[in-house]
Design a protein around this nucleic acid. Structure first.
Lengths: 213, 213
DNA sequence: GTCTATACCCTGATAGAC
DNA sequence: GTCTATCAGGGTATAGAC
């Protein structure tokens, strides 16, 4: 058990607890107990609880690619379908938690009411990386979306939808709330694609019309 | 100072503090200090802190009409514009708080990770009343929206947008994030209205085309 | 109904042996 | 680097006088 192992264990444990119980409702003792460690270890690596939070936020940021996007995009190459595959990953998280899941970043963003600059910057960085990934998809979609649609704003709107949808599904404890929101977003995308398609052929590229809504 | 005054003062004070600092970060002592009361008064009216929260949630529920919708809809009669006037009210709340504002219901929904049934029901009731108000607008819009669009789902999607947009504006501390989301929703609505309009005359009812984006 | 005083627990964090 | 023991403060809630 090297030093990095202990540090990593603390971060991973805190990640889980902050996600499941929230930051304020997770005590340092909770983290130590779950990690099977003692007070001295934590304060050896971190000056205080908030610094543990910073490490957790950095871990989320680093994990967006390998732990979120890559699994979600397994076998999905169509850029627009990737956007909805990402949303489907959140749906799975809701489904396997009886709708107890909440986006950990979004939850922290609302739970921490006067966060330090360092915390806020990391929350924002997580959102930005998520939005950028979706924006890349939208740019890959090229002419399938109207030229005058701002890709970044639309990508941010996908995040907006995900966060709002997760919030409602969690509150109602019903997957249907999430599905309804995604259905609306899908409808919006379909209208955008229809508007971008050449006037004559209705919806071009039948390969872009697939399963899912 | 009658009994109800004290109780009301407690609820109003708690409303403000829970909104500004969150539930867990607001101590009973905070509430008592801000209300200028002592411990005995609070526990005379409420068995505990959580019961105060229930009263706060009931107050929000009761206030949706007079404190949220009516001010937001002052001088706005067009049902679709009312939807966006409601969003504009949230924009004002963000603007006057340097983007520190967060929807109190949404924040509680994410902050409280294992809420009692009573709490969850009241959170859901608040969302439901909000959605219903928007749904009423959408139904008033009648044929201006496509027939096959589910009014309730679209209304819930407006809530989704508001919550996600407030969350991002708060995280980035930038009104622009909120505006971008509303712009996307507006675009979606315009496409819906265009799809609902008779083929010949482009957008019918020039009275429905007004200021605002 | 409202006050003061206080019980009792859990919090984040520290000290110092090993 | 990790342990045990502990501190000082704040948390919710209660007791009982007025």
């Amino acid at each position: 058990m090297t030093a990095t192992d202990t540090r990593t264990r603390l971060v991973l444990t805190a990640m889980q607890l902050f996600r499941d119980k929230g930051y304020n409702s997770t005590s340092v003792a909770d983290v130590l107990h779950s990690a099977g460690l003692n007070s001295g270890s934590l304060y050896h690596f971190f000056p205080g609880k908030q610094d543990l939070l910073l490490a957790v936020l950095d871990a989320y940021h680093g994990g967006i690619g390998p732990l979120l996007l890559e699994p979600a995009w397994q076998g999905v190459s169509d850029p627009i379908e990737r956007v909805f595959a990402l949303l489907a990953a959140y749906r799975r998280a809701l489904a396997t938690s009886e709708c107890g899941y909440a986006c950990p970043i979004g939850s922290l963003a609302l739970e921490l009411h006067e966060p330090d600059r360092a915390v806020r910057e990391r929350l924002a960085a997580n959102f930005t990386a998520w939005i950028q990934a979706v924006q890349d998809c939208l740019e890959d979609a090229g002419a399938r979306l109207p030229r005058d649609i701002n890709r970044r704003e639309l990508a941010a709107f996908v995040l907006t939808t995900m966060e709002g949808a997760v919030m409602q599904a969690r509150t109602y404890r019903e997957l249907a709330s999430f599905d309804a929101a995604v259905r609306q977003l899908r409808d919006y995308f379909q209208r955008l694609q229809r508007a971008a398609a050449p006037r004559r052929g209705r919806v071009r590229k039948s390969s872009s019309r697939r399963k899912r809504s």
